[in-house]
Design a protein around this nucleic acid. Structure first.
Lengths: 214, 214, 214, 214
DNA sequence: GTTTAAGCGAGACGGTACGTCTTGTCTTGGC
DNA sequence: GCCAAGACAAGACGTACCGTCTCGCTTAAAC
């Protein structure tokens, strides 16, 4: 869901005023790119500041000065990744929208090198990075709510259907399969999860009140 | 789903002939317990062999001798965790069975201290541990298939419904919410995911052939 | 022997044209004072340009611009310390003159905070500073030669007595005890070394020709 | 005065019982030798743990493990240097004994490479090393007191002559000239300081009671 | 009940990475 | 146009783990 590279200049990290143009910004981009490249090559556990700095053509201490530690580095990578103008597909059908969304997720999680899985795994290593990761997902899911709203507007879903649980139900199986269960990529899985969720939603599974146990 | 403590004697680790009774077995249990305790206290990244050994009242080299490295240690913990006689609930209703299952997952993922999440996260640190984790999940899902079979036998599901995708769809949202999205525990989420999946399954969402793209 | 603070304007450092009055001179004084204060507080090894600059209310780069490096800074401090009108006591007696001199040394080496010892130790850190330190001592000893000349004029010393070795013999024990041996301050040591040297000098120990090896 | 290399096995540093023979002892010797070699080549300020370890054929962390920091390393070097059976000359004459002593000092301070000056300078860098340096000097001066005792026994010195101030007075000029004043080596200086001190001592300069101001 | 060999305690070691601290240079923006 | 502010390169420091090795001691299994 969404890309991991984006316009980084829009989200200057900490500091008072980080010298908008010039070396500072260029260095940041180089380092963040190096993080992604290293993650892709060596995985979340082979990520060392030394290697990142070398690849970015920067000295190790520069990384520590700007990002304090690995967690800060990952957090900034994630923040930069979220700073784009991504939006969900708009096909006119809930199932197809969700399928398109799932296909993006599928592609991101199975792309070679596996940058996204490594990034997710790495985020467990620091509270700061985990926080950024959750911020990113929250933003992505928020942008996706329009998919449900459109379906509601079309009358394809019962009134009261809640977007967030629906979206989570639709996308969770992909993450679970590919990230945790280590299953082989399955092109059908994107549509299967989308259709199951669309069916359940049409049947009222995601309306706020469980209406008792019908 | 399932417990993380179990009868360890049933799965002697790699060694040639493990001296069934006595110090060896006792030491193993102490060390594995220490791993869980350390994971609970310090999280997946604060797991050090030194601390495990000290807590187990054993010398560091003993750990390395028996389990070779941290990955081996985690793998053995996971294998021991899977060596029990756990089985899914049997309530007579698919939705209720799935709800019960999800409640177990919910409890495991939100228990204090957070041993299970830490264990899952830690498993990313070594291929060997990741393999063991997947073995554990595969075993658990296999044991759960009976839930679907019973529903099929009762005629509650269309013929051709596949168990595995159904189970994954039912349980994935819990993992996704609690592990990846870091959402607050929500007692309703277990039933919501169960009902949505049951509804979708009843509508034929998990029959093998997608019946083309409608 | 001599003081460590003195009129600084008389010895413009390296710079091209030192702008006699105004900010330049004021800044120099602030920085040199800050060096002494830092030396007193943190000792010869805790002297950092950063701390000196901060204490002087000046930016770090200003220090580097004006003094190039720590060695230059120390050298300037020492040169400033030597730029005074100090002179040895004149009591009418060689032993008393030397005693007075030694008491000054004793006080300088045992004053709190220990600025002088720290300065001497710090001077080992750069050839430039070491050179300045030796320049300072050489100047001080040169000014002290008059003490010996007066004694010669009074006829208290044999003709041919050399001033420099006599002065070194008289003062060395103080430096040795307090700086190298770390002995506790001893008020008697000043006079003891002075008297021993005066006695030896009167006996002809510092005449140029050793009169062969008797 | 005395040598800086000595039998190191006689003074096992800290720890309970350092496995007397074998790798441990060999490693210690290699490292201490490397410290001296590095001091000789690069001076007190060019002494880095990395270089010492490399030269000793040992890993950097081993040095930190055993000696904690540079100060501990220097302290152990100094302790090892003091663990020999050195003794002062015995010529039958106070002046000649002191001259011989001073010649040893002169040689040590002017030897190439300048290991001893570097070691002394380096000792200023850590309280622990400074302490060891003073311990070493104290031991050396204690061993030298016999020189004065013999002169007293011969009747060459007035009763009540105190050994320590005499020895300090005799040796201090050498240290002062060569270490602090940076004077060029002067072969006569050893005898000059010795004779001056012997003359003063014979005249009663080092008897405890100053006998008022004669 | 004694061998006997595995398991274990103890700890030095090589090695990797971390994050910190200084030094001295270089760049940039503001006054 | 100077100069403050501060980013940067370079490199040493000391720490924390990891996993390997060697040495003896102890103890459980086998004879």
């Amino acid at each position: 869901m969404g890309s991991e590279t984006a316009d980084p200049e829009t989200a200057p990290p900490p500091g008072p005023r980080p010298r908008p143009g010039g070396r500072t910004a260029r260095t940041r981009r180089q380092v963040l790119d190096a993080v992604l490249a290293e993650l892709g090559e060596h995985g979340y556990d082979g990520l060392t500041v030394e290697a990142v700095a070398t690849r970015a053509g920067v000295h190790r201490t520069t990384v520590y000065r700007r990002w304090r530690d690995v967690g800060g580095l990952l957090a900034d990578v994630l923040d930069a990744a979220g700073a784009d103008d991504w939006g969900p597909p708009d096909t006119g059908s809930l199932e197809d929208d969700l399928t398109g969304l799932n296909e993006e997720i599928h592609d991101a999680l199975t792309a070679r090198p596996p940058v996204v899985p490594a990034l997710i795994a790495a985020s467990f290593r620091s509270p700061q990075a985990a926080e950024a990761q959750r911020r990113l997902w929250d933003d992505r899911y928020a942008r996706c709510e329009v998919v449900v709203e459109r379906a509601l507007a079309r009358g394809d879903l019962p009134a009261g259907t809640e977007a967030r649980p629906l979206l989570v139900a639709a996308t969770a199986p992909l993450y679970h399969q590919l990230l945790l269960l280590g299953a082989a990529p399955d092109p059908q899985s994107a549509r299967r999860a989308a259709r199951a969720t669309a069916l359940a939603a049409a049947a009222g599974a995601f309306t706020g009140q469980p209406a008792a146990d019908t």
